[in-house]
Design a protein around this nucleic acid. Structure first.
Length: 237
DNA sequence: AAAAGACGCAACCGCCTACGT
DNA sequence: TACGTAGGCGGTTGCGTCTTT
């Protein structure tokens, strides 16, 4: 070739082009919408054989016409054996409200403390029931403070906005979690940051006084970031 | 009985962080 | 350091079902 290209480079180019076309066609063919029983069985049996992870390559290996994200979501929210998929009890409902008052819309963190229920399930439950329940009780579901007395009746604007991004007022901007303070017991002194965060949450949920805040070492605990984020639900960089 | 509206929930989308190269 | 990929999260959408008219 005189212009700088040889046969090999043309072949490479064509191969890459065909791969791209294949990729586009596959994306176009991806199925959306509700999962069928057959798809659930394919996904479950594949994960039971190969385990979780590698979601992007999973659909092809499991012979599913779904994107990896869709497979992961289906497994995490519905097919995992640990999910109990039942009615949320009154105790759990109370816990969700307490946790939401502390954590805001951090559904995954809330779900982490409600065994057998997923973040999506709790998010839906909050948006469809609990927020309305609080409004009917005269409580602002965003701030967990009493609504203005003039609007004690359910307010449609509030109902609609209650699902939008919000932040807990009482914690996020005032009292950050300090892994070094307020151990629940002497044993906690040797606990991991996760345990300490858990104890911290427990103390907040139970409204125990915790006023021995010490200088904070944020690097010791990832969950600390939730109290210092940028307002969109994701920790600050 | 049928149409319209409301509701609940599964799933999608876009953005982010973590991690490997 | 920059970039690409995978996984995770919260907000939103859209569809099926239920209720009301």
């Amino acid at each position: 070739m005189q212009n700088g290209f040889n046969d090999n480079s043309i072949l490479v180019f064509i191969s890459l082009f065909l791969l791209k076309i294949q990729h586009i066609l596959r994306a176009e063919m991806m199925k959306k919408g509700l999962w069928t029983r057959e798809e659930d069985e394919l996904l479950s049996s594949y994960i039971s054989r190969e385990g979780e992870g590698r979601w992007r390559s999973l659909p092809k290996k499991a012979r599913l016409l779904r994107c990896g994200k869709s497979c992961r979501l289906r497994w995490m929210n519905y097919l995992r054996p640990s999910i109990k998929r039942g009615q949320i009890s009154a105790d759990e409902e109370d816990l969700i409200i307490r946790l939401h008052r502390i954590l805001g819309n951090r559904w995954s963190l809330i779900a982490g403390r409600i065994p057998g229920h997923t973040d999506n399930e709790i998010k839906n439950y909050w948006n469809t029931r609990l927020s309305k329940k609080l409004i009917s009780q005269g409580i602002d579901p965003k701030t967990h403070k009493p609504l203005p007395s003039s609007s004690s009746k359910p307010n449609q604007d509030l109902i609609q906005s209650s699902s939008s991004s919000n932040q807990p007022e009482n914690i996020s901007n005032s009292t950050p979690f300090n892994p070094n303070s307020c151990p629940a017991s002497d044993d906690d002194l040797s606990n991991s940051p996760d345990d300490l965060f858990s104890s911290f949450l427990d103390s907040l949920i139970n409204e125990e006084p915790c006023n021995q805040h010490m200088p904070i070492d944020q690097s010791k605990h990832d969950d600390f970031k939730i109290f210092n984020d940028n307002g969109n639900g994701n920790p600050m960089k």
